[in-house]
Simulated scan of single mutants.
Amino acid sequence: MYKITISQKGQIVIPLEIRKNYGLKKGDQLAVEDSNGVIILRPLPRHPLLKLRGKYKSSNPADKLTTALIKERTAERSRERR
């Protein structure tokens, strides 16, 4: 059992061991339930797309979508002028 204190703003700190056990990270959300005088904190599932964040970053700036679109538009203008 852990003992925690509620701050003046109503905030609590979840002990590190519990955060590690449940894989809780900054930005994760918890459901708070009141059940017969017991406060229950339950982790909410993360959005599946958040797992992909940063996974497909390219180290080559030329591969970025903006650069590709600019090249495509430039080529289109060249073809239209002919």
Rank of each mutant, 00 (worst) to 15 (best):
Ser59Tyr: 04
Ser59Ala: 07
Ile4Met: 12
Asp28Ile: 05
Lys3Arg: 13
Arg46Asn: 04
Asp63Ile: 04
Leu69Ser: 02
Tyr2Gln: 03
Thr74Phe: 00
Ile6Glu: 10
Ile18Ser: 09
Gly54Cys: 10
Val32Cys: 15
Leu52Gly: 01
Pro15Leu: 00
Arg53Ser: 05
Ile14Lys: 00
Lys51Ser: 12
Gln11Ile: 13
Gln8Tyr: 01
Ile4Val: 13
Lys9Met: 05
Lys9Arg: 15
Arg81Val: 09
Gly27Val: 07
Lys57Thr: 06
Glu33Met: 15
Arg73Tyr: 11
Glu76Val: 05
Pro15Trp: 00
Lys26Asn: 09
Pro15Tyr: 00
Ala68Thr: 10
Leu24Ile: 08
Pro48Asn: 07
Ile18Ala: 09
Pro43His: 00
Leu49Trp: 11
Glu72Cys: 04
Ile70Phe: 03
Pro15Arg: 00
Ser59Asp: 13
Glu76Ala: 10
Leu50Gln: 02
Lys20Gln: 14
Gly23Asn: 11
Ala62Gln: 14
Lys57Glu: 11
Ile39Phe: 07
Ile6Cys: 02
Lys64Ile: 02
Thr67Tyr: 15
Asp34His: 06
Asp28Thr: 10
Leu24Glu: 05
Leu49Cys: 04
Leu50His: 03
Tyr56Ser: 02
Pro43Trp: 00
Leu30Ser: 11
Ser35Phe: 04
Gly23Val: 11
Arg53Glu: 08
Pro45Asp: 08
Leu50Gly: 06
Ile6Asn: 00
Pro15His: 00
Ile39Glu: 04
Arg77Phe: 08
Lys3Leu: 12
Ser58Arg: 14
Ala75Lys: 08
Ala31Leu: 13
Arg82Lys: 12
Thr74His: 01
Leu49Tyr: 02
Glu17Leu: 14
Glu80Met: 15
Arg77Ser: 13
Leu16Gly: 02
Leu24Met: 11
Lys25Tyr: 01
Met1Ala: 13
Ile6Asp: 00
Ala31Gly: 09
Val13Ser: 15
Ser78Phe: 08
Lys51Ala: 13
Val38Tyr: 02
Pro43Gln: 01
Thr67Gln: 08
Leu44His: 09
Ala62Glu: 12
Ser58Ile: 05
Asn36Ser: 12
Arg53Phe: 14
Asp28Pro: 07
Gly23Gln: 10
Lys26Pro: 06
Leu41Asn: 06
Val38Met: 04
Asn36Thr: 05
Lys51Val: 08
Ile14Cys: 01
Ala62Pro: 05
Gly10Asp: 08
Ala68Asn: 05
Pro45Asn: 10
Tyr2Gly: 01
Leu44Cys: 03
Lys51Cys: 01
Gln8Asn: 04
Ile4Arg: 03
Lys57Met: 06
Ile6Tyr: 02
Arg77Pro: 00
Ser78Ile: 12
Ile12Gln: 14
Ala68Leu: 14
Val32Gln: 07
Gly37Glu: 11
Ala62Arg: 14
Leu65Ile: 07
Glu33Gln: 03
Thr74Cys: 01
Pro61Met: 08
Leu41Ile: 07
Ser35Lys: 13
Lys25Ile: 11
Leu30Phe: 06
His47Val: 09
Ser78Val: 10
Ser59Asn: 13
Arg81Ile: 14
